[in-house]
Amino acid sequence: MQASDRFNINSQLEHLQAKYVGTGHADQGRFEWAVNINRDSYASYIGRHPMLAYIAIAENESIGRERYNFMQKMLLPCGPPPEKDED
């Protein structure tokens, strides 16, 4: 293996995918993509207090409850995954 192989695009991507959850890949499906986007969004809402407050006002819930709801939604943000094709 040549030294330059370490820097080629595929190994870099693999490295990124291992390191950063949610990095896309060539065979990624629609569902997987949506799940990642949703989880990222929920994590971003949880981390940003003004955003939580904004949503809490709209729903008339406490901020603590909103935070909990978002965490709960991270489990299954887009419903169950689609059936996989056999081939």
């Binding site: 959850v21 949610g22 994590a43 991270m74």
Partner: peptide, 26 residues
Amino acid sequence: GCRRIVPGQFLAVDPKGRALMIAACE
């Protein structure tokens, strides 16, 4: 940034002040 796997959301400390844990949502 407030990312899902970058720690910062949660912090906890050993009551005797010997160690500290910082965690992300995921």
